[in-house]
């Protein structure tokens, strides 16, 4: 599965398109880590446990989007975008969406 966030796949040509595919996750850490991050947040600086949470959520959202595209018979997703929103303190939503297409390498 090839993913790009531009309107084509360089070196490939688009044969068919199947429309919008998307995936989303809402994830929260447990309250112990929330407490630790709260203390860290008071002093400022990067919150490593929340960064990991964001990475996991992004992977999960992309995987769901890929599954949907595979069911449609696509082998690439173009114009992938991410949107994030805050649900409550300590929980974040990551939403990934794109257009599922079928591509073929250009000869020569």
């Amino acid at each position: 599965m090839i993913l790009t966030n531009i309107e084509s796949v360089p070196g490939y040509k688009i044969l068919a398109q199947y429309g919008l595919v998307s995936g989303s996750t809402v994830r929260a850490k447990n309250f112990v880590l929330d407490f630790g991050a709260g203390i860290k947040n008071t002093f400022g600086g990067e919150l490593k446990s929340y960064t990991e949470l964001l990475m996991e959520s992004r992977k999960e959202a992309v995987n769901r989007m890929k599954e949907q595209a595979q069911m449609m018979g696509a082998n690439a997703i173009i114009n992938v975008r991410f949107a994030t929103s805050a649900v409550t303190a300590g929980a974040a939503e990551v939403y990934a969406y794109g257009t599922a297409v079928k591509v073929e390498p250009v000869e020569g």
Binding site: A37, F43, G44, G45, E46, L47, T51
Partner: peptide, 9 residues
């Protein structure tokens, strides 16, 4: 990705 805390001050 990154999450940065602003800090109390």
């Amino acid at each position: 990705e990154v999450v940065v805390g602003v800090g109390y001050f």
